[in-house]
Amino acid sequence: MAQEQLWTIKRVLDWTSGYLERRGDEHPRLSAEWLLANVCGLSRVELYVNFDKPLEQAELTAMHAAIERRAAGEPLQYVTGEMPFRHIVLRCERGVLIPRPETEVLVDAALEGVDAAVSRRGGDVVGERAVRVLEVGTGTGCVALSIASERPGTLVTATDLSDRAIRLAARNREALGLEDAVELVECDLASGVDPALMGSFSVLVSNPPYIPTRVLREEVPAEVVDYEPKLALDGGPDGLDVFRRLLELSATALEPGGTLAVELYEGSLDDAAALAGAQGGWASVEVREDLTRRPRVLVCAREG
């Protein structure tokens, strides 16, 4: 075969970008890079220093299958099976919500709560005085595992109603070597958490299903609705069905001075703040914006 006929990395990238653009991909070059990097076992930077490297037949076959899945609208994270999030890389799979960049703001708020608890303890955070975090709805484990990896010594209990999510989070936990720092519990909200731990958590953090049902039905892209689990998306008529339950849980789960941090739909934050204010017991209630300057996270600090 003549050299110009070889399917080199550059030729595959260029062809894939054009094909995905014609199929309606909003970021065709980025998609092409992700897919090819995954197939070849290279980083995106390494693709560009190996432009002339020809693909082997097995790589071409795998790339063709990946392109067709992406062209059909399947999210990149499901096609490649992984997703970078903050300082870690997570496995992703169908049936479990894909981590979003805006959720990094939620992690920031939770870490602030951990740091505040460390300060309250005078820096003594070992043994029974270790800082405890409760996450509801862990999914891939992105929030719980980020907290545990970025604040060594923190003990995280993470729950999810989905058996599939718990199993995926467990694989991610093991890949990161965080088995001793993160406990995973399959249950509704915190019903399976050791009752003896209630009142000992410094942070209650959650990215619950929060998209209002009408918005999910009429406005959310097909790439999300057709592939990601509705259980992790639909927040009820106003998007706050699970949030109301989290507010109730916070009253028993959090220690005095503890932090509640919840990611919510941008149009629901004012109502959520009002609900927290009506509940009482909070020293502060704050709405924070995500990376695109949209209201995204409610952060409440308990009195005491």
Rank of each mutant, 00 (worst) to 15 (best):
171 R>Q: 13
159 T>N: 09
126 V>H: 12
177 G>H: 03
160 D>Y: 01
169 A>R: 00
176 L>M: 15
121 R>V: 08
114 V>S: 10
185 V>W: 01
156 V>W: 04
130 A>P: 06
184 L>D: 01
152 P>M: 11
158 A>V: 06
164 R>A: 13
119 S>I: 12
115 D>G: 14
159 T>V: 11
169 A>M: 02
180 D>T: 12
125 V>D: 10
182 V>W: 07
153 G>R: 11
163 D>V: 03
160 D>M: 04
146 S>W: 00
148 A>F: 00
115 D>H: 14
176 L>W: 11
184 L>Y: 01
136 V>P: 00
185 V>C: 08
185 V>F: 03
160 D>Q: 06
155 L>H: 12
154 T>R: 10
117 A>G: 13
135 E>F: 08
162 S>C: 04
150 E>A: 12
165 A>G: 06
171 R>Y: 01
120 R>T: 12
185 V>R: 03
141 G>W: 02
153 G>I: 11
162 S>F: 02
170 A>E: 13
148 A>W: 00
154 T>Y: 06
119 S>L: 14
175 A>Y: 00
149 S>T: 10
129 R>T: 07
184 L>N: 03
124 D>E: 15
169 A>K: 00
169 A>F: 02
151 R>V: 10
121 R>N: 14
147 I>E: 07
132 R>M: 10
141 G>L: 04
158 A>Q: 07
178 L>I: 13
180 D>E: 15
143 V>P: 00
143 V>G: 00
134 L>M: 10
113 G>W: 03
177 G>A: 11
133 V>M: 11
146 S>E: 05
154 T>L: 10
164 R>E: 15
176 L>H: 15
137 G>V: 06
118 V>K: 14
113 G>H: 09
166 I>R: 00
135 E>M: 11
144 A>G: 08
130 A>G: 14
135 E>V: 06
185 V>Y: 04
182 V>D: 07
146 S>H: 04
121 R>K: 14
172 N>I: 01
178 L>E: 13
173 R>D: 03
123 G>H: 14
132 R>P: 05
147 I>Q: 07
149 S>P: 05
133 V>T: 11
120 R>M: 13
140 T>E: 05
166 I>S: 00
159 T>K: 05
180 D>S: 15
155 L>F: 13
129 R>I: 05
152 P>H: 08
172 N>Y: 03
161 L>N: 01
114 V>W: 05
140 T>V: 04
156 V>A: 05
119 S>D: 15
136 V>Q: 03
148 A>Q: 04
166 I>V: 12
116 A>F: 09
160 D>R: 03
161 L>E: 06
123 G>S: 14
163 D>F: 06
171 R>M: 07
115 D>S: 15
166 I>P: 00
143 V>H: 02
124 D>L: 14
126 V>A: 14
147 I>N: 07
181 A>P: 01
180 D>V: 04
156 V>T: 08
185 V>Q: 05
139 G>D: 07
146 S>P: 02
180 D>A: 15
169 A>I: 02
122 G>Q: 09
149 S>M: 06
182 V>T: 13
